[in-house]
Amino acid sequence: MHSTAYIIRFTIVMTVIVAFVLALMVSGLKGIHTENEEVYNKKGILSAVSEQLGKDVNVMSNKEVQEIFGSKIEQKVVNAKGEELSADQIKVATGGAAAKAEDIDLAKEAKKPVDQRLLPIYVFKGNDNKNYNILYVRGKGLWDEIWGYVAMSEDWNTIAGEAFDHKGETPGLGAEIKENKAWYNQFTGKKLYDNTGNFKSVSVVKGGVKDAQHQVDAIAGATITSNGVDEMLERGIKYYEPYMQKVKKQEIKNQ
């Protein structure tokens, strides 16, 4: 049998060694981890305009993603009043953590009251010389958070592309929002406003689409995730509405 003193000494030595090695590894790999995370998020944004890229985002190297993101995307941040914020204003709002849309901690923003929230917009210049405005939405699925990027056409009404992601939806059911291309492609070409100009969003419905402009079919067996996407789009895009209206007015003036 070992003495109590030996056991205590053993424990302390073991803990110190393990803690030291792990701490060393974490700080040593931190740079790579942050870059990987950044690229992962950027891939998410770019997959909303995947049809414009001509290449699958998932097979792109880190460098390619950073290059496309750097050269073709312009980042904006707006608030719920529709005002575009300058870099200094973003710094103040995030407590110095971010100066650009890509650096904003979006999970933190989702917890703020709506009137203080920062809303990122990524403007993608397509090969067809059109601008695609990618909006960010976030909501709740069945098990955890879901989020998505919706690319808007220049008319600020038609959806040009979309990409959803989730934290822990069921594979084969809720996770289809990310994986089933046939499902999420349903959103492409849908309209956000009805003919009289009222905001209507795109709803996810069960039992067949009746309104071809504003409805998509839900996923069988994943009612709560489908409802989550529905709610997320309606609430999330509505935050951007003041900004969208403002831009539209400006465009009419310029013409």
Partner: peptide, 12 residues
């Protein structure tokens, strides 16, 4: 250790 390495090698 394995998790930290995997996170660096293949993030997705």
């Amino acid at each position: 250790v394995v998790e930290l390495i995997l996170k660096a090698v293949n993030y997705p």
